[in-house]
Simulated assay, not measured.
Amino acid sequence: MAKPRIPRAKARATGADVAHKERFVGRNEPAGLADIGEPFDWLNDNAKKAWREIVAEVPWLNNSHRGFLAIAANIRGRMIAGEDCGVQALNLLRQCYGQMGATPADASKAGVPPGDDQEDPAEAHFRGA
C-alpha cells in the first residue's frame, strides 16, 4: 500500500515542500478547509486547554481534524486534571495523534529537523573515535 500524501500545510510547516519541491508542484489541495477554530463549547476547561496546546504543537491542523482533535483534547484534558486514564484511552489518544500527523514518527517522515544541534555523546563511540 502506498504511503499517504503529506498535506501541503504540513509540508510547509516541516519544510518538506522545500526539500521535495517536485512532489508539490501542481498539487491541488482540498478547497474550503478553514482553520481549526476554537474548541467546542461542550468540552470542559481542561479539554479546552489541551485543545489549544495541541493546536500550538501541530500547526497544520484544519477544520477537517476537529473530530480527532476533540477526542485527543478530551483525553489529554483528563490527564491535565490528574484523572486516571487507562490503556485504552491512551491508545486512542495515540491513534488520534497519528491520524492528525502529530506523532514523532510522522514528524520524522516529514523531515522535521531535530530541536537542538547538540551532538549525541554516544555518537563518538559508534564512530570509533
Rank of each mutant, 00 (worst) to 15 (best):
73 A>L: 04
72 A>N: 04
71 I>G: 02
23 R>F: 06
40 F>I: 01
47 A>M: 02
56 A>M: 08
98 G>P: 08
32 G>P: 14
91 N>L: 12
84 D>F: 13
25 V>Y: 13
90 L>I: 05
30 P>T: 14
105 A>N: 12
34 A>Y: 08
81 A>C: 09
80 I>Q: 13
50 A>K: 10
96 C>Y: 02
74 N>F: 15
26 G>P: 03
21 K>F: 09
59 P>S: 12
63 N>K: 12
54 I>N: 06
95 Q>I: 09
95 Q>E: 03
41 D>Y: 04
62 N>D: 14
38 E>G: 07
75 I>K: 12
27 R>A: 09
99 Q>L: 09
62 N>S: 01
91 N>H: 05
69 L>K: 10
38 E>C: 00
35 D>H: 05
87 V>G: 01
102 A>P: 10
85 C>N: 11
42 W>M: 07
89 A>P: 00
46 N>Y: 15
67 G>K: 14
23 R>C: 04
104 P>L: 05
68 F>P: 00
99 Q>T: 10
51 W>H: 04
48 K>D: 08
93 L>T: 07
100 M>C: 06
96 C>Q: 15
53 E>F: 05
28 N>M: 09
46 N>L: 04
106 D>E: 15
54 I>K: 00
51 W>N: 06
60 W>P: 11
63 N>V: 11
35 D>K: 13
43 L>Y: 11
79 M>D: 07
80 I>H: 10
81 A>D: 15
23 R>Y: 05
65 H>Q: 01
31 A>N: 11
41 D>M: 14
28 N>C: 01
50 A>I: 09
68 F>Y: 11
83 E>Y: 08
66 R>I: 06
49 K>G: 00
